[in-house]
Design a protein around this nucleic acid. Structure first.
Lengths: 205, 205, 205, 205
DNA sequence: TATGAATGAGATTTCATTCAT
DNA sequence: CATGAATGAAATCTCATTCAT
């Protein structure tokens, strides 16, 4: 049973390696299966097709991240945000959870975020951004209500959501050490919050 | 002779369309040449190979942008930055020049920045970022010199360079109208400068 | 033991469904066994190979039909056909028996007759036709003996045998209700007998 | 230019041979192209795909037959059929034209009619039958109008259309010599007309 | 009795590139 | 200047079949 188990594990490990190096589109099932010591046909015993193999690599980490983000948002919306004051470090807990999770499946997530072109997961990052944007929108609406004569800057809102996601992607791509990552993400998040407070509202003419 | 000229123009126009729709890797020379009313063989009269065709689409706009950025940096470094004060609008001229140039060759630049995977130009964006980063580094060193007991945050520097480039890419991708683009880039740039001033230096322990 | 029995039954039922939908060649053992809740390997416990599975679906009905036809022919040849007079309804008993049997195993027979391409049973219909043709030949020889100066039209004989079989196949394919089928086959058979009497002999030059 | 021309011709000739022997589904592009002395890739220069290659073999003959049948039907409907009398030989001209055309492209038509399973042309024979049936229906309606108290037998109409087509297919399959074919089709058609007149109407209860 | 794993050969299709003409 | 033909390699995927357990 160990052998069989190992074969599947090995296949997925080799797929992960190849996807990371070449991206979905240029990855070759032939070379993946050769590396895993099996025939291409055997791959189709373990998964439906190339997209299925990709899914076998990324699905679990993806689900974990999605769950974490949703949970955080639910909690976040319940807290009192009436003050809109920002103290550096407010988001530390979330950042810590995110980073710990991101680095737990670092390769799989890098593949998902940067090497999925051509796959069924292409554009997954946009779904992340949408998610964040919805949350940010709700927040901004509350905020705007407190400042008559001000109007929400929708473009800024979208761009900041974009940057927030990319901040994590950038980290994952450029920093190997999760400890350092945690230190580095803090000023980034602080800056985003400051920017948010300063620029999400503009004068209503 | 006009005919030849026209044929080349048409080829490049069709290539631009296909690259924009499918990206470099999935674009097919057969379908490009068919659209341009010629055979695949004919393509090899006009350019060396697939990468060459891609270059024919993006090289000129790329050079123009590179030149603009370099020129701006040369000028920027000569101005007195000893104050490091930021007044909103400081970067307006540059932003205006950038946006006007970006939108003049919008399709080609979108291709270069987002559809070059698999081509010789894959990762070109990193070269842009390097360029900006060098400039930002020089600036930051001057800045740091004025604040003993402070140390430059290298990660922040790199990330901010990244974000600066991506701000323009995001704009190009999401905003069709250059007039609106100009209005939207301003708070973005303001926020980046504020963030720069607030977070590029950190306490030296 | 019941379980085993059930498993086999289920396998054959699922095979029947798949063969009916896709035909022998396009049917997939994988999808059949999946539908039957077993692995492809298990199929090889129940039958030798793909052709064997096909046989498990069609053999019994095939034998029943073959037996019926043979029995009818033996009986038919013993009756006095010296008159060669045809009264509408002469063949009613046979037609009734045929139709009752055909509709008892309708799916299996449709598979055998129309979906066997690629299998060992491909062209089985020709064996039916041969069988009928032999019988018709014997009949025609008696008939011809009674008409000197006339000669049997061999092509007509073959074609009529062909049409006779196809009349039943057509019925099975186009008519769901065996009651209606019985009503519809009568004028068909009448017409065939009339045609037989009128055209099976031709002038001998 | 002859060479190029020859290559395409040879490809189609080899395809015709393979389709005739194995049928569409079991025919292999690999073995066709090998027989034609080219690589599989080259096949795709000459035609779109496997179905396209099949079309290159059968399209022209198919169109010719369709045109002939349509033309015949148009002419046939204009003649006075008020008498509904049948004289043997009435259909000789049409039969002659059909047979001459069928045997001119015999192999291609055999492929189309009997070896097209799995291709885009699968079931083409049903379209022929529909065509004939429409024509027969129009005829039968006129006929029925002349016999009050009688009702058209729709099943018989459909079956006779079926048999009419199959009479030609049977001929093409079983008789090599077009001269003999012409002689053999006559009593067949005579019998069909007689059957038509005798059985297409039934008592209206 | 049945499984799960794997094979190995085959299928069609796509593609950038080359080259004689 | 451009074509039409062809290559050759690679791609993904499917399948009946086998076999140790």
């Amino acid at each position: 049973m160990e052998k069989e188990y190992e074969a599947r594990e090995k296949l997925i490990a080799c797929a992960k390696k190849e996807f990371l190096e070449k991206g979905f589109a240029k990855a070759s099932l032939r070379s993946i299966s050769a590396a895993a010591g099996m025939t291409t046909g055997a791959v189709y015993f373990f998964c439906k097709d190339k997209n299925g193999l990709f899914g076998a690599v990324v699905d679990e980490p993806l689900n974990r991240i999605m769950t974490l983000i949703s949970a955080h948002f639910s909690a976040d919306m319940e807290t009192d945000v009436s003050q809109f004051q920002h103290h550096p470090g407010d988001h530390d807990d979330f950042a810590e959870a995110m980073i710990s999770m991101l680095y737990a499946d670092r390769d799989a997530l890098l593949i998902l975020l940067e090497k999925s072109a051509g796959s069924r997961y292409e554009g997954i990052i946009d779904r992340f951004i949408e998610l964040i944007e919805q949350h940010n929108l709700a927040l901004a609406e509350k905020y705007a209500a407190a400042f008559p004569g001000k109007r929400m800057n929708r473009y800024m809102l979208h761009w900041l959501s974009h940057v927030e996601i990319n901040a994590y992607v950038h980290l994952l791509t450029h920093e190997d050490d999760p400890q350092k990552a945690l230190r580095e993400i803090k000023p980034v998040m602080d800056m985003l919050v400051e920017g948010w407070l300063a620029h999400i509202l503009e004068d209503d003419i």
